[in-house]
């Protein structure tokens, strides 16, 4: 490469290119980091939302089952089936983006849903225990005290059997299911820890390239300063000093500096000029 202006231009262009590259890197890395954070937050949000939905469906199922079994509401059977279907749909949706370590929990949850479905289907397919009552608060319980027993109508054998089924069979399955949903919530929340750790690593990784690029850029700027000083500024200062010395004290024109390109030509030209002037004077 020749020409001091070309050298300086290329030097500056290198710095500009490096600046541009480090800017691009920071943008790229920040975007990656932002996407990672977003995906972790989204995963967390969707996990919680699915778990909440599942708990709601389980509650709906419980409510509908109670109405169907204990109050004999025919319409509640449909709601029961809809709630179990919704629970299955929610479990299948969770499985699509399953976090590590939660697979077994979801398998158990599916099993409990299937059990609940089988249990409730068996009951739904049988004849309702009673006709619809006026007020659900008048529901007889096994533990009711003697005063209430006296006040309320005596429950039939079918009523008693429905109550026993609800308490001994259904409620156990229902509790097991809701406990499992809560367990899933805890586990999916726990699975966020390694992802957050990964995020921490990603943050480190996103800063390091920019930091290293900046360090390299500082080194290059310092080198540019040094080279401009050595090959640009210092020769001009020395040429000027030497020329001044010649003009003032008639000292021989000699430049002690590293001269390249136009500055070498300038020095040589001045030297020739000095020689010509000396020759002219002698003549």
């Amino acid at each position: 490469m020749k020409g001091i202006s070309k050298r300086v231009t290329v030097g500056f262009m290198s710095i500009v290119a490096l600046l541009f590259v480090s800017g691009m890197i920071s943008l790229f890395e920040l975007r990656t980091l932002s996407n990672d954070t977003e995906s972790i937050l989204a995963a967390s949000r969707s996990d919680m939302s699915y778990a909440k939905d599942m708990l709601r469906y389980a509650h709906d199922h419980n409510h509908a089952m109670m109405r169907r079994t204990l109050f004999g509401e025919e319409a509640a059977a449909k709601e029961c089936r809809q709630a179990v279907d919704a629970m299955e749909v929610a479990t299948a949706a969770v499985r699509r983006d399953i976090p590590r370590g939660v697979e077994e929990c979801l398998d158990t949850l599916s099993l409990y849903i299937a059990e609940l479905r089988a249990l409730s289907e068996e009951r739904l397919n049988s004849k309702p225990a009673f006709v619809k009552r006026a007020h659900p608060n008048l529901l007889p319980t096994l533990e009711s005290d003697s005063v209430q027993v006296d006040a309320a109508p005596q429950p039939s054998a079918e009523q008693l059997s429905a109550s026993i089924w609800y308490e001994q069979d259904y409620e156990v399955a229902y509790r097991r299911l809701t406990d499992q949903v809560e367990r899933y919530m805890t586990l999916s929340h726990g699975s966020l820890a390694p992802r957050a750790e990964q995020l921490n690593k990603n943050a480190y990784r996103s800063i390091t390239p920019v930091f290293i690029s900046l360090l390299v850029m500082i080194a290059i700027v310092l080198m540019l300063y040094f080279f401009v000083l050595v090959y640009g500024v210092r020769p001009i200062v020395r040429i000027n000093r030497s020329l001044s010395d010649y003009l003032a004290f008639k000292l021989p024109f000699k430049v002690k500096a590293e001269l390249i390109d136009e500055l070498r030509e300038l020095s040589d030209n001045i030297e020739n000029l000095v020689n010509i002037s000396k020759t002219n004077k002698n003549e």
Binding site: S14, L18, I212, S213, I220, M223, F227, I260
Partner: peptide, 22 residues
């Protein structure tokens, strides 16, 4: 990505003195 970027930065560090020093 780390290797490519490191390679480019190192190359730039290596080439830069050659722009000026004959």
């Amino acid at each position: 990505y780390p290797l490519l970027l490191s390679s480019l930065l190192t190359m730039l560090l290596g080439l830069f003195p050659m722009i000026f020093v004959p």
